[in-house]
Amino acid sequence: MRSLRLPGFALAIPAWAWLVTFFVVPVGAVLYFSFGYKPGIFGTHATDVLSFDRYAEALSPTFFEVFMNTLWVGIAGTLLCLAIGLPVAYWMAVKAPANRRGLLIALVMVPYWTNFLVRTIGWQIILAPEGWMSQLLQTVGITDGPLEILYTRAAVLIGVVYNYLPLMILPLFVAFDRVGPALREASKDLGANRVGTFLRVTFPLARPGIIVGLLLVYIPLMGDYITATVLGGAQGNMVGQLVASQFQAAQNWALGSAMAVLLILVIMVSAAAIGLLLWLVSLPFRARNRVVLEASA
């Protein structure tokens, strides 16, 4: 290829041009609209006077509550995914028989690749007040009346934890698998008990995978639109729905754009904050755990 006189990035030009035309330009336009306003009832946006007014409007108490709700669902959902997924990933990588691992990965994959909307509808059937789960709980006597969880924030939380859990389990599995049995055995040979081995060898080495998992779950979860639409009512509103309703029902592209830009900013800032927090928390442990995987780059 050395005699080729084209620049090195020539082969990337088609993809670059495609993404610029259908991603950078339209998203840039949204950024531009967000400084405009909605002219009259029939207009969707105007940009002859630019201001930050739409941002102020997007953060007014009614909408601000939705932003806070989204953050709550985002953080609680991500932490729940970690708490539920970590033991499973550890079991898959360390305890489960090696020849079953491919099958187990496939089992985590199947829900992930089932249509997002359809699996969320599956939860709607399970959680419905007239559904079988509700009847079962009443028959057994756990609840008095029908199950009243659908169209609440709790239902949205169940939905998002379910929908994004595979994105937590897979990177954690890869991380635990990468540590390999040799280091754990070495740790035990040197007299560490199993808790010590997990806390001082396995866990620190798997930390990059944990951070990847947290980000893979948190980022799409914050922008979620489908789960909240199917399972959340007025109480389970998320910013994604707010953006959609401004563009569709309210026909206020300027305000919708400001909300979209704010959503991206909130995701980026909070993800960075979480990353920083994790780093700070891990600092005291770092000095004592100097185990490095040399050839793992």
Binding site: V30, G223, G256
Partner: peptide, 18 residues
């Protein structure tokens, strides 16, 4: 990376007017 982390809903509302 930007393409992968942008919420789908933002892609959607941006693409339609464009």
């Amino acid at each position: 990376l930007l393409v992968s982390v942008t919420p789908e809903i933002v892609d959607a509302v941006a693409l339609l007017p464009w």
